[in-house]
């Protein structure tokens, strides 16, 4: 399996993205990435690299090649929809500022 960013003739270990849940009740958050030959080794290495100080209670690893990202070139258009729609935020409604518990 080839991962982006890996080149050259020699077969390399694929790249995995690592997500850590720091405590029960919180989401898994991206912590970094590492190379490993398979998923089992990736989880073990992720434990050793990213949780040496009790940073996590759960680890996910995802093959980097399996992630689909939005097109960075089309960033403007892709994220255009919320522009100018301040009324989606509570702060837009300033008339209510002085009223308590609102």
């Amino acid at each position: 399996m080839a991962s982006p960013g890996e080149s050259g003739g020699r077969e390399q270990w694929p790249l995995w993205e690592v997500f850590i849940r720091s405590a029960r009740g919180l989401s898994h958050v991206h912590a970094g990435s590492l190379h490993a030959p398979d998923a089992v080794m990736a989880v073990r290495n992720a434990r050793d690299v990213y949780t040496r100080r009790n940073e996590g209670v759960s680890v996910w690893v995802v093959p980097a090649a399996a992630i689909t990202a939005s097109d960075p070139d089309a960033r403007g258009a892709f994220f255009e929809s919320p522009q100018g729609k301040d009324y989606r935020h509570a702060t837009y409604y300033s008339e209510a500022d002085a009223v308590r518990h609102l």
Binding site: P4, G5, E6, L15, S33, A64, I67
Partner: peptide, 13 residues
């Protein structure tokens, strides 16, 4: 290259 760092494949160069 780390995809979750926001990199789309083939865009490296």
């Amino acid at each position: 290259m780390s995809l979750a760092e926001g990199t789309a494949p083939g865009r490296m160069d």
